[in-house]
Amino acid sequence: MKEKEGYVDYPEQQMILYVEKDDGKYGPIQTGSYISANYMDDYVLKRRNLEMELRTQLADGMISPVKYYMVLEDLSLSELAARAGIRKSRVKKHLESKKFGGASVDELSRYANVFNVPVANLLQVILVSHQGKLESNLILENKAEKISVNHTTTTNPFVVLTTIEERF
């Protein structure tokens, strides 16, 4: 690849690309991510649709919050079980809405730790009303809008402070 073909204007995600320089030598250049520069809108669209679909299934009792986060975070059943340190057969039960209630607080805490969300978020979905639509924090973070939802951990492993802040 020639150096001039390698440059992509996308300061939000920089990377190193190896290219052929004008003198014929190969070496690194710092450039932007091609796929993020050209296809970020498509990623956000798919992510939003997936979140909405899973949220509907969650609200309708078709899936459990564990399944909700497992799909969103692209984890397999085996991987989630290994990461949470919970038997696979038990995780499988917790994916079902009806059997989710059998999970202990300790197990919820283990799942929350893997998903990097507060334990409370396994019992609620926080959304922000934005231009007539309900959006998740991830979608808003990407769009750099004015409102952000932040979670701050405390020394109590089950308690997180959730703050809704205005960005300036």
Binding site: R47, E73, N142
Partner: peptide
């Protein structure tokens, strides 16, 4: 890392 870029 922005959350949309993060994977396990």
């Amino acid at each position: 890392v922005p959350s949309w870029e993060r994977v396990h």
